[in-house]
Amino acid sequence: MEKSKEVFLMTVGEDMKVEIIEAELKKAGIPLLKKHREGGDYLSIYMGRSMYGVDLYVSEESYGIAREILLDLGITDIEGNPVGERNPEKDGKGHQQNKVQVKMFKVGIFLIFLLWLLLWWRSA
């Protein structure tokens, strides 16, 4: 039995929208694979939601049906585009902006840790 190839469907930013998509595709018998971007899966556990979005994948055979279902529901991706209509010019900018956000997040965490360390050292 051959394993089917997974195909990118869309990126969704809201957890509620992911749940709606998952439920609708499940009704049609289409399995859905969710991959959180960057550290999104850890943020989902810690804060209850991710600010990076979730990439959704379906099997290659189910892509057409899944796309039709989501188009009928009027569901759009994280940038407001209909399913399967990604703008390559925006994709590069969005990915670059995402990298900057991650870098700023890491710097912020480092500075908070440094401040905590300094306060701890002064109190000792």
Rank of each mutant, 00 (worst) to 15 (best):
S123A: 12
G80R: 13
Y63K: 04
G48R: 05
I75S: 06
G29M: 02
V18M: 11
M47F: 15
G84W: 07
A124Y: 14
I30P: 12
L73Y: 11
V83N: 09
Q96G: 07
V107L: 14
T76P: 02
L73Q: 10
K5D: 05
I112H: 00
S4R: 06
G94F: 02
V107K: 15
V18A: 12
K93T: 10
G40M: 05
W121K: 11
E61H: 00
I78V: 14
T76N: 03
S59D: 00
R122D: 09
G53S: 01
E6Q: 06
G13K: 06
R49T: 10
W116H: 06
V58W: 01
S4F: 01
R86E: 14
L70W: 10
G94Y: 03
G53M: 01
G108W: 09
E14D: 13
Y42D: 12
E14G: 03
F8S: 13
E14N: 12
E2T: 04
S59N: 05
N81K: 11
R86F: 10
V7D: 03
F105W: 09
P31T: 04
V83D: 08
V83S: 14
I20D: 00
Y52W: 11
W120A: 12
T76F: 01
H95P: 00
W120I: 06
A28C: 07
F8E: 15
I65K: 14
P31D: 00
I69K: 04
V54M: 10
G108Q: 13
K3L: 10
Y52N: 04
